[in-house]
Write a protein that binds this DNA or RNA. Structure first.
Length: 645
RNA sequence: GCCGUUGUAGCUCAGUGGUAGAGCACUUCCUUGGUAAGGAAGAGGUCGUGAGUUCAAUCCUCAUCAACGGCUCCA
């Protein structure tokens, strides 16, 4: 009998009889592993533990502690969900049901049946009941004809459609209990592993992600091998909600929305404005240092400007509609981006190759008519301010300039403690080129330059097709919010198209006219979105140089209000932001209120402090720090908490 | 824009087919208190908006607006 050589993750290898299964291997390693094994990675593919292995391969056994194990677990859970749903609502049609980062979903067509939150509990109960049966997941190879026949008979048009695209010979079914699904696998050994089930919510989702298709019902759920883990997960979700920037924005009085002003149009309250202006100052300084020239351009521009840029053709009908004037036929658009304005600044005079690069920076407020359902707190709004800049440079300067921008973005992220970002290279969708303008050769060049620049700074990048802007590829810096949703913050884009459309030129050393290249870039992305993600990251406990209120001065009683007034005045003289709480309340109360407002420092003043010109320092979340002279406090504070450079 | 859920005081939320309630916040008074809520009184709501059913609607029906969870989109 032949043998196969199995290499374990630690590099050691063992021989097993051909046809050995993952379960056999797990058992041979330890009984404990056999009990918790969920799936096995064989030569880079994830398999069922029951599938025979017939050739030499490196393997890795997945348990609940591995991402791969969780995916298998949740994939199988999606099947149990489908089984439960079919048991309760016969005739339901199924779309797809994949595992996701946290749990799984299944797209289903329930016909005319309305499926709401009430139904979730019923299905959950049924899932638990079915899981307890310990049904095995059975893999079956089927011919395409047989598979089509099965789903046609069952009346499941979505599966039939999916099957059309599959090649005969590669099709497998999985069966557990009374449910059979078209599925590539893999699955956990049996349903018994699933002990805790929570169906989280119901949503609509277009079949195959296409707006023109029918909308199916998508049910999101998550399962665990232990009830306790489910409880911990739900608790974690609750905690994450406490950091939601919309909740904290209201509680800390940073920003607000008004139905009367209009949806997606944030109102910045005094405290939020301090935060925002601090960030602006920080960026202005960094940009001056990096050789940018600040400019200011108007909030509207004539329609012709956007016709030239190509934005009108692409977004015109889906935008805020043109502003008309008393003059017949005169139309202006609310500025949806700053680039065309900056192009016109470039054009105010002839440019020499010696002038380049020219870096024009503007905190430009723009307005975009986002679809109503897409608005989301401060992360997706209809009026927002970009920390925008456009670099006009020679083709030979593109990479160097791009790398400098990467450095600026990383400086910003480091200064604000964003460590977990993803650098995403956003490319064209090669299958849908009509969505983009410009020649292939220029696109290829731009895409190559971006990748090279990212490599030069050793960024770990993820390339995603179809995410490019319509005029060029991008390097996007993605950061997650409290609930794990990804948002694009910083973005850098190489653009050969707009210089073409605006006929931008410079005179080269050869005395000939040449076309510059444009780099669009915004390290924050937008102040609104950046602040939203910042709030969620620090849970409202901002870096002190950003805090709207850095210090609260709290007199023990009214008798010390005068001294407290002197203290707050001295702080203000030194550009330290703070407030005096001279309410007729006990000190415990004033402290509690300052703690709830997340004020980083509290200075408590009473009899002892007045006598010696001192302050009793209390730190947010850390309690009493003892007393120091006011001057020393100020000196130390300024030293420690000034704006990073 | 699409699917689902929600909308009651400044905030968090109860509640009922017979024109509304709590806690916190707010105002006034008492209290002058040393490191996370002192006490009392008071004021505050067209029950998102519009229509319909009803003797009567905050509650039932429909429409509409907004928010929330997704889908699609994101210059």
């Amino acid at each position: 009998m032949s043998e196969v050589k199995i290499t374990l993750p630690d590099g050691s290898s063992r021989n097993y009889p051909a046809g050995v299964t993952g379960m056999d291997i797990a058992k041979s390693i330890s009984e404990g592993l056999e009990r918790v094994a969920l799936s096995i990675e064989v030569g880079g593919e994830i398999w069922d533990l029951s599938r025979p292995i017939n050739k030499d391969a490196p393997i890795r056994i997945f348990t609940w502690n591995d991402k791969g194990g969780k995916y298998t677990f949740w994939h199988s859970s999606a099947h149990v969900f489908a089984e439960a749903l079919e048991a309760l609502y016969p005739g339901v049609k199924f779309g797809i049901g994949p595992p996701i980062e946290n749990g799984f979903y299944y797209d289903v067509d329930l016909g005319d049946k309305e499926f709401g939150e009430d139904d979730l509990a019923k299905v959950e109960a049924k899932m638990v009941e079915l899981a307890r049966k310990n049904s095995l997941f059975l893999r079956k190879d089927v011919s395409k004809a047989a598979a089509l026949d099965f789903f046609k008979k069952k009346g499941d048009p979505y599966k039939v459609e999916l099957l059309q695209d599959l090649t005969d010979g590669s099709i497998t079914f999985y069966e557990q209990g009374n449910f059979t699904d078209l599925c590539r696998g893999p699955h956990i050994p049996n349903t018994g592993f699933i002990k805790a089930v929570k169906l989280l919510n119901v949503a609509g989702a277009y079949w195959r992600g296409d707006e023109k298709n029918k909308m199916l019902t998508r049910v999101y759920g998550i399962t665990f091998p232990k009830q306790k883990e489910l409880e911990e997960y739900l608790h974690m979700l609750e905690e994450a909600k406490k950091r939601d920037h919309r909740k904290l924005g209201k509680e800390l009085e940073l920003f607000a929305f008004s139905e009367k002003v209009g949806m997606g149009l944030p109102l910045w309250l005094p405290k939020g404005t301090v935060l925002r202006e601090r960030l602006e100052q920080f960026m202005r300084k960094a940009q001056i240092k990096a050789g940018y020239d600040p400019v200011v351009t108007p909030h509207i521009g004539s329609k012709a400007l956007y016709v030239t840029s190509g934005h009108y053709e692409k977004y015109g009908k889906d935008s805020f509609q043109p502003i008309h004037t008393p003059d017949e036929g005169e139309e202006f658009l609310l500025k949806p981006m700053n680039c065309p304005h900056h192009c016109e600044i470039y054009k105010v005079k002839p440019r020499s190759y010696k002038d380049l690069p020219i870096r024009l920076a503007e905190f430009g407020t723009v307005y975009r008519y986002e679809q109503s359902g897409e608005l989301h707190g401060l992360t997706r709004v209809r009026g927002f301010t970009q920390d925008d800049a456009h670099i006009f440079c020679r083709p030979d300067q593109v990479k160097e300039e791009f790398v400098k921008v990467i450095d600026l973005v990383l400086h910003v992220f480091n200064s604000l403690g964003f460590e977990n970002y993803t650098a995403q290279v956003s490319l064209r969708d090669p299958a849908d080129k009509k969505k983009y303008i410009g020649e292939d050769a220029l696109w290829d060049r731009a895409e190559r330059e971006i990748q090279e620049a990212a490599d030069e700074r050793h960024l770990k990048t993820v390339a995603v097709k179809g995410e490019a802007a319509f005029y060029g590829p991008k390097l996007d810096f993605m950061v997650k919010d409290a609930l794990g949703r990804n948002w694009q913050l910083g973005t850098i884009q190489v653009d050969y198209q707009l210089p073409e459309r605006f006929e931008l030129e410079y005179v080269g050393s050869d005395n000939q006219k040449h076309r510059p290249v444009m780099i669009h870039r915004a390290p924050f992305g937008s102040l609104e979105r950046f602040i939203a993600v910042l709030i969620e990251h620090c849970a409202g406990n901002f870096p002190i140089w950003l805090s709207p209120e850095q210090v609260a001065v709290l007199p023990i009683s009214e008798r010390f209000n005068q001294y407290a007034g002197q203290v707050i005045q001295e702080l203000k003289n030194q550009d330290i932001r703070g407030y005096l709480d001279d309410r007729d309340e006990k000190i415990g109360r004033k402290i509690r209120d300052a703690e709830v407002k997340k004020v980083p420092y509290m200075l408590i003043v009473g009899e002892k402090e007045v006598a010696e010109n001192r302050v009793a320092v209390r730190k947010h979340g850390a309690g009493d720090q003892g007393s120091v002279g006011l001057d020393d406090f100020v000196k130390q504070f300024l030293k420690e908490f000034s704006m990073p450079v």
